[in-house]
Amino acid sequence: MNLLTTPSKANSRWSSAIQQLAESAGIGFNGSHPWDIQVHNPGFYQRVLQDGIVGLGESYMEGWWECERLDQLFTRLVEAHLSEKIPQQLSVFLSLVWARLANLQSRQRAWIVGEEHYDLGNDLFEIMLDSRMQYSCAYWKEVNTLEEAQEAKLDLICRKLDLEPGMKLLDIGCGWGGLAEFAASRYGASVVGITISKEQQHLARDRCKGLDVEIRLQDYRDLNDTFDRVVSVGMFEHVGPRNYDTFFQTVRKVISDNGLFLLHTIGSLQSDLSVNPWIEKYIFPNGCLPSMLQIAKSTEGLFVTEDWHNFGADYDLTLVEWEKRFKAGWPELKENYSDSFYRMFRYYLLSCAGGFRARDLQLWQIVLSPHGVPGGIRVPR
């Protein structure tokens, strides 16, 4: 018998409580299923009960437990709503209170996620992502590879926007310039992309050399130009509920009266002011996923909703592919990143894949117009 995986008498009450919760989701400990948890440190049980979701993630980062298929584990955890049954630590409660009192995505704080996540290193994202470095959900309809699925997503966006040569396109949260390059080279658009990441700006400018593309290091609240089309892909998750009205008012200010706006965002099934506390602490500081209600309230009186497309199941496929690439490329990355970072990043990718697979997380593409398109639009799928 392995003493490291056998809780002491003092730990028995902790382990019994956790095991009862896990059994309701079909999850075992030190079992043979790929989603079972293999416990290496008996303190795991107490830590999860005391620290909740944060303790679960931190103990994995520290090697206290393993799981062959983290994605399958989290699908089961989410489907059983176990996170609602585990007490949260005081610091998590206080952070929720703070989110209700403060604007976590103010002008001053908006740059934090760029510095702490998107500026991690282009080497990491170059290995993990496709050639255009699309760090958002791919579109897997009728394709088989990540490269094909990301190009299909970019083409879908341009077709939904009815983009034509010479049109001025604003890309809010342009990332590493993949969409800007695609829209300019394939559709002949004149593109302005804005980002809050210096690393993204540098690479995006190199990617778009020779094209009618301008990449700015700029907060969306400082925009004043006028555009025929506006797009925002994977950025709205960093805007925050206190700023949703400002965001859509800014888009309305800069878009022409006969323009179109496409918003591509992860969505939540319920309105909230924060995200998974482990994700907020280690991956996306100050992030928050919008609900349908929050988006509808903030666009009321500003836009007509022309189309609302949900293909969240495709994010599961995208995240699993990113994790495969990250894992395969780790030998090239490990000199620049710690073993704890490796465990953290795999945990992030696969836990999110589980959330999308359980349909707890959504991916929406929403097409909006200022006054409604005469006769309506026929949106491609």
Rank of each mutant, 00 (worst) to 15 (best):
167 M>E: 12
41 N>T: 01
285 P>R: 03
142 E>D: 13
136 S>M: 09
322 W>F: 06
300 E>Y: 03
6 T>D: 00
170 L>M: 13
258 N>P: 06
77 L>R: 01
121 G>M: 06
347 Y>M: 13
175 G>A: 11
165 P>D: 05
106 S>Q: 12
333 L>N: 13
100 R>M: 10
328 A>N: 14
216 R>H: 12
30 N>M: 06
63 G>Y: 13
130 D>S: 05
97 V>A: 14
227 F>D: 01
309 H>G: 00
303 F>G: 00
213 V>N: 04
371 H>V: 13
110 A>W: 01
164 E>T: 08
294 Q>S: 10
78 V>A: 08
366 I>E: 09
213 V>E: 09
96 L>W: 04
189 A>P: 11
288 C>A: 09
224 N>G: 07
154 L>K: 14
243 N>W: 01
171 D>P: 10
347 Y>R: 03
30 N>P: 05
273 L>P: 02
198 K>W: 03
177 G>N: 07
185 S>A: 15
118 Y>T: 10
81 H>D: 15
276 N>G: 02
363 L>M: 14
255 I>L: 15
261 F>C: 08
200 Q>H: 08
219 D>P: 08
31 G>A: 09
124 L>I: 15
168 K>I: 02
359 R>W: 04
302 L>D: 01
234 G>P: 11
342 Y>C: 11
331 P>Q: 14
140 W>Q: 03
267 G>D: 07
258 N>F: 15
312 G>T: 05
33 H>I: 00
258 N>T: 15
331 P>E: 10
184 A>H: 07
261 F>M: 08
253 K>N: 12
314 D>W: 14
326 F>V: 04
154 L>I: 07
260 L>D: 05
110 A>R: 09
83 S>T: 05
346 R>C: 14
319 L>Q: 06
174 C>K: 10
291 S>D: 08
206 D>T: 12
251 V>G: 03
198 K>N: 10
288 C>T: 12
278 W>Y: 13
204 A>S: 12
221 R>G: 03
28 G>I: 00
299 T>V: 14
293 L>Y: 07
110 A>S: 15
277 P>W: 03
283 I>A: 07
67 C>L: 02
69 R>D: 15
93 F>C: 12
147 E>Q: 13
324 K>P: 02
159 R>W: 08
178 G>M: 06
15 S>T: 02
114 G>N: 10
70 L>R: 05
156 L>E: 02
180 A>D: 08
363 L>Y: 14
342 Y>M: 09
14 W>S: 14
203 L>R: 13
29 F>S: 01
45 Y>G: 05
130 D>C: 04
280 E>V: 01
336 N>W: 09
137 C>T: 13
223 L>W: 05
131 S>L: 01
357 R>T: 00
286 N>K: 09
354 G>W: 12
360 D>W: 12
63 G>P: 03
231 V>N: 05
349 L>E: 11
280 E>C: 02
217 L>Y: 15
4 L>I: 00
268 S>D: 13
133 M>Y: 04
28 G>C: 02
330 W>V: 03
305 T>R: 15
102 A>P: 00
219 D>E: 08
227 F>N: 04
317 L>D: 05
192 V>C: 07
